[in-house]
Amino acid sequence: MLQLLAEAVRSASQIPQGFRELIQKRCEERGILFVPLPNRYRQGKQIYRCGKIQIYIDRSVVFLSENGNTWLPKSLAAVLDMAM
Rank of each mutant, 00 (worst) to 15 (best):
S60G: 00
V62E: 09
A77M: 09
M84F: 14
D58M: 05
V79I: 15
V61R: 03
M82S: 15
T70R: 12
I53Y: 01
V79P: 02
G68I: 00
F63W: 08
L72C: 09
A77C: 11
I55Y: 09
K52N: 13
Y48R: 11
W71K: 01
D81P: 00
N69Y: 15
V79Y: 12
E66A: 10
M84E: 12
D58K: 06
S65D: 13
N69S: 14
L80T: 05
W71E: 07
A77V: 12
V62S: 06
L80C: 03
T70L: 13
M84V: 12
G51M: 13
S75E: 09
L80H: 09
S60M: 03
M82R: 14
A83D: 06
S60I: 11
L64C: 14
Y48G: 07
M84L: 14
Y56V: 01
I57H: 06
L80V: 10
M84T: 10
L72F: 04
L72E: 08
D81S: 12
Q54T: 13
Y48Q: 05
P73M: 11
G68A: 11
Q54N: 14
Q54W: 08
P73R: 15
I57N: 04
C50Y: 04
W71F: 04
S65G: 07
L80E: 02
S65P: 13
M82H: 15
I53V: 12
G68D: 03
L80F: 07
G68P: 04
Q54D: 15
A78D: 11
L64G: 13
I55L: 09
A83T: 00
L72P: 08
A77L: 12
N67T: 14
Y48P: 05
P73L: 10
L64A: 11
M82P: 05
A78S: 14
K52T: 10
A77W: 04
S75K: 00
S65T: 14
L72K: 15
T70N: 14
I55A: 03
L80Q: 09
S65R: 01
E66W: 04
V62K: 05
L80S: 00
K74A: 05
T70M: 14
K74G: 01
I53K: 02
S65F: 03
N67L: 10
M84A: 15
S75L: 02
L76C: 08
R59D: 03
S75W: 06
A78N: 15
L76I: 07
M84C: 13
K74D: 01
S65K: 05
K74N: 02
T70Y: 09
F63N: 08
A78F: 15
I57G: 09
W71D: 11
I55S: 05
R49I: 12
R49L: 09
E66S: 15
V61Y: 03
S65M: 08
D81I: 08
W71Y: 01
R49E: 12
R59E: 07
D58N: 12
A78V: 10
V62W: 07
E66P: 04
C50R: 07
S75Q: 11
I57W: 00
Y56N: 03
R59L: 00
C50M: 01
K74T: 02
E66Q: 12
Q54A: 10
I53N: 05
A77Q: 11
N69W: 11
